[in-house]
Simulated assay, not measured.
Amino acid sequence: MGLLSQGEYVCALPGNAVGTPWVEEPTRNFAITGASSYRTGRGNGTYLLEGARVTFTRGPMKGMKLMRLGSGLLQEVGRDDKLGRLRCHRAGPLN
């Protein structure tokens, strides 16, 4: 078990070659606030980090799963356990 780095996380989907490279999804953004805790614009919750897999266990993101790809970079994991398109990165310290 582990903890994610505290801070604000910004989530985005890939764009396209002729437009913006990333399209931010502000409703998916979140902040890691402390030991296994997070907050969003819709409320607070908890998560569990096992190895590289993050599972949101309570709150508005309950059931969402992410895979830690590197320091501060996460990618959504679908119900089929395949990596999805949404990526979230640590954008800075808590506001």
Rank of each mutant, 00 (worst) to 15 (best):
A52T: 15
G41F: 08
V77D: 04
Y47G: 04
L69A: 07
K82H: 07
F30W: 09
P93D: 15
L13G: 00
N16S: 08
L49M: 09
K65I: 13
Y9E: 00
Q75S: 08
T33M: 03
L48S: 15
Y9H: 03
L48H: 14
G43S: 08
S37W: 09
E25F: 03
S36R: 12
A12L: 02
L13P: 01
Y9P: 00
G84M: 04
T55M: 11
D80Q: 05
L49K: 09
R53V: 15
G43P: 03
G70K: 03
A12C: 05
L66S: 00
E24G: 09
N44Q: 15
S37C: 15
T57F: 06
D80H: 02
R90I: 03
R42Q: 12
G2N: 10
G19W: 00
G19A: 02
L69M: 12
Y38L: 08
G2L: 03
R87F: 04
F56I: 12
N95R: 14
N16R: 02
T33Y: 03
G92N: 05
F30T: 03
P26A: 02
L83Q: 11
L69Q: 12
L83K: 10
G78F: 10
H89E: 13
R28K: 09
P93Q: 13
C11Y: 11
Q6M: 12
K62M: 06
N95Q: 13
N44E: 14
A31L: 15
T55Y: 07
V77L: 10
G43C: 10
E50N: 15
L86Y: 01
R39G: 00
K82E: 05
P21M: 03
E8W: 14
Y9D: 03
G84Q: 01
E24K: 09
P60N: 10
R53S: 11
W22V: 01
G2Y: 00
T57C: 08
R85T: 13
R28V: 01
V77F: 00
N29W: 02
H89P: 00
E8Y: 15
G43Y: 03
R90H: 08
V23M: 11
A31S: 15
V54E: 06
G78E: 08
Y47P: 06
T20P: 04
D80L: 05
Q75N: 05
L86A: 00
W22Y: 03
T46C: 06
S71D: 13
A91L: 02
R87A: 06
I32G: 06
H89K: 11
C88V: 04
P60H: 11
H89A: 15
F30C: 06
T40C: 11
L3A: 14
S71G: 08
L83C: 07
R42L: 13
V54S: 06
G84S: 07
A91H: 10
W22F: 07
V77I: 14
M1L: 12
L4M: 07
L4D: 01
L74Y: 06
S5K: 11
Y38I: 05
Y47A: 05
R79W: 03
T46N: 09
T27M: 11
G15F: 05
G78N: 12
L3V: 15
R87M: 12
N29H: 11
L3I: 09
P93H: 12
E25N: 05
W22H: 00
L48D: 15
E50K: 13
A31Y: 10
